[in-house]
């Protein structure tokens, strides 16, 4: 380690159009770091755990920001801040789940600059990895969290494959629950992918948490919303502190209701898997049942089915069960 501690030389690019940003991202590829709010980025750089030769700042591109009504729902620009999302009347009216999730991210100061794309594409908060250790996720051969001595209170219950880190995002489970799609731009054009398929576990790619490749940029997020359909939303986050903390477990639920019964359910948790974790057994169980205490009890029993707790995170099983119970009791 060097005897002095200054930031390494970094070139800063500030494109004002998506086309320019894509050209830059494509040209600089893995040597570039995309930044909008910078709430994940600057932590890495300040800790000297990661470095970059170039940064492409996306927050000056007007077309990447804003919330608008589309034919089938709502379209949110990638660099739209979490505060804008939390305060948007349109979102509160049509997809309150996302507004609620955005409202629970970190602190007001962070929400004022943090973007929706940054929140879903952020890296995991595993402290061994963040410390800069050469763990699996950092390209090494070890997981320091999943050992008899490892401190893994915040780590995963599902989807472990050498790495046991979790997705820390609050808005990601909400987007999966809402059936959102993400538009990604690269040199070959725009590609649309379901939010659920955007995230990737360590079994498939241990060094990334999503499918975004060097040279690709998130342009927008589209959330389907039909005011004619009766949908009930629920979001709850459990963290050690009420503000400025990552979720131990959070839950985003979307229930389509008809005549008092659930016709379609989506339950998604973060903080329990490397990607937003869908509770598919709970979803199946709830279909054609009325939301209420009885259904809640049955669903809670299925909430953490298949969980493989680590030494210090057994409590997350009870948290998941209780969150499902509370979501259905409303």
């Amino acid at each position: 380690m060097s005897a002095f501690d200054v930031m390494s030389d970094t070139e800063l690019y500030q494109p004002v159009t998506v086309e320019d940003a894509v050209v830059l991202a494509s040209r600089l590829a893995e040597n570039a770091w995309l930044v909008a709010g910078g709430q994940d980025t600057y932590g890495w750089l300040k800790d000297r755990a990661k470095n970059t030769q170039a940064m492409i700042e996306l927050s000056r591109i007007p077309e990447l920001s804003g919330i608008k009504r589309s034919a089938s729902g709502i379209e949110i620009g990638a660099t739209t801040t979490l505060t804008e999302i939390a305060n948007s009347k349109l979102i509160q009216q049509l997809i309150p789940l996302l507004g609620e999730a955005a409202q629970h991210v970190a602190s007001p100061q962070i929400r004022n600059v943090g973007s929706i794309a940054g929140n879903i594409a952020q890296d995991t908060r595993c402290w061994y990895y963040r410390r800069g250790l050469s763990c699996y996720r950092a390209g090494g051969n070890l997981c320091y969290a999943d050992t008899p001595e490892g401190m893994n209170r915040e780590h995963c219950l599902f989807g472990a494959s050498r790495c046991v880190a979790v997705s820390p995002s609050d808005t990601a489970p909400a987007l999966v629950a809402l059936g959102a799609t993400i538009v990604i731009a690269d040199s070959s054009g725009n590609h649309t992918i379901a939010a659920e398929d955007f995230f990737v576990g360590p079994d498939i790619d241990i060094t990334r948490m999503n499918i975004l490749k060097p040279g690709q940029i998130i342009v927008s997020i589209h959330i389907p919303a039909d005011p004619e359909i009766n949908v009930r939303h629920y979001f709850e986050k459990v963290a050690d502190r009420n503000v400025w903390d990552f979720a131990l477990v959070n839950i985003a639920v979307s229930l389509e209701m008809q005549a008092g019964k659930i016709t379609k359910a989506r339950f998604v948790c973060a903080g329990v898997d490397c990607k937003p974790y869908r509770l598919k057994e709970v979803e199946r169980y709830c279909e054609n049942k009325a939301a209420g205490s009885e259904t809640a009890e049955g669903a809670a029993r299925l909430a953490a089915k298949g969980a493989v707790p680590l030494n210090h995170n057994h409590f997350k099983i009870a948290l998941m069960q209780n969150l499902v119970r509370r979501a259905l009791r409303g």
């Binding site: 380690m1 755990a49 410390r131 250790l133 050469s134 950092a138 390209g139 090494g140 051969n141």
Partner: peptide
């Protein structure tokens, strides 16, 4: 090799 946080070279494979 990979350089760990203490500046040591770690053999990776």
């Amino acid at each position: 090799y990979k350089q760990d946080v203490w500046g040591r070279e770690v053999l990776l494979g």
